[in-house]
Amino acid sequence: MEQPAARIGSAGEVFLAFLKLGLTSFGGPIAHLGYFRDEIVVRRRWMGEVAYADLVALCQFLPGPASSQVGFALGLWRAGPLGALAAWTAFTLPSALLMTMLALGSAALDGAAAEGVLHGLKLVAVAVVAQAVWGMARTLAPDANRAAIAVVAVAITAILGGALAQVAAIALGALAGLVICRDGGQGATSASRFTISRMTGLTSLTLFAALLVGLPLFAAASGGHWLDLFDAFYRAGALVFGGGHVVLPLLDAETVASGWVNRDTFLAGYGAAQAVPGPLFTFAAYLGAADGGLVGAAIALVAIFLPGFLLLVGVLPFWDALRTRPLMQAGMRGANAAVVGILGTALYNPVWTSAVLTPTDFTLALVGFVALVAWKSPPWIVVVSLGVAGGVLGVL
Rank of each mutant, 00 (worst) to 15 (best):
G334F: 02
S377R: 14
V179W: 15
V367K: 01
L251Q: 04
A108F: 13
P279G: 01
S10R: 05
A337E: 04
V384G: 01
A289S: 03
G391M: 12
A141K: 07
A290V: 02
I170S: 10
I304T: 06
R78N: 03
V14E: 00
A221K: 09
L178Y: 12
L312C: 00
F266N: 00
G214A: 09
A86T: 09
L82H: 12
I381W: 13
A168L: 15
L347W: 07
A188F: 07
V70E: 02
D264S: 15
V276I: 01
A290C: 07
V126R: 05
A6Y: 05
F283I: 00
I342P: 04
T189R: 14
T203C: 13
G224F: 14
L347E: 03
P317Q: 04
P326H: 12
T345P: 04
V152L: 15
A210M: 07
Q186P: 01
L251I: 04
W88K: 07
P317E: 02
W260H: 09
A137P: 05
T324Q: 10
K376C: 02
T265M: 09
L347Y: 01
L306P: 10
N145R: 11
T24F: 13
G242N: 03
F266M: 00
E254A: 15
E13A: 15
D320M: 03
I149D: 11
P4H: 08
A96T: 09
I8L: 14
G12H: 01
W352K: 06
V383M: 00
A148T: 12
A132R: 02
G9I: 10
A257W: 06
G9T: 12
M332R: 13
I30R: 13
G242K: 01
M99D: 00
A53I: 08
L109F: 15
W88F: 15
R138S: 12
D231V: 09
L310E: 03
L212Y: 09
F36T: 06
G390S: 05
S192M: 15
A285L: 05
V295R: 13
L93A: 14
M332G: 01
R37W: 07
L55S: 13
D228N: 15
T353K: 11
Y270S: 03
T206K: 00
G201W: 11
G244I: 00
A150D: 04
L118W: 08
E254F: 07
L267A: 03
L160S: 10
F26C: 07
P379K: 02
F362G: 14
G177R: 09
W380I: 11
A5F: 11
I8G: 15
E115T: 15
A86S: 11
V276N: 00
Q60M: 08
A169V: 09
A125Q: 06
D231G: 10
A321I: 10
K122S: 12
A163K: 12
P216T: 12
L366K: 02
W375L: 15
T200H: 10
H225C: 12
F194D: 07
P317M: 03
Q69D: 04
S190Y: 12
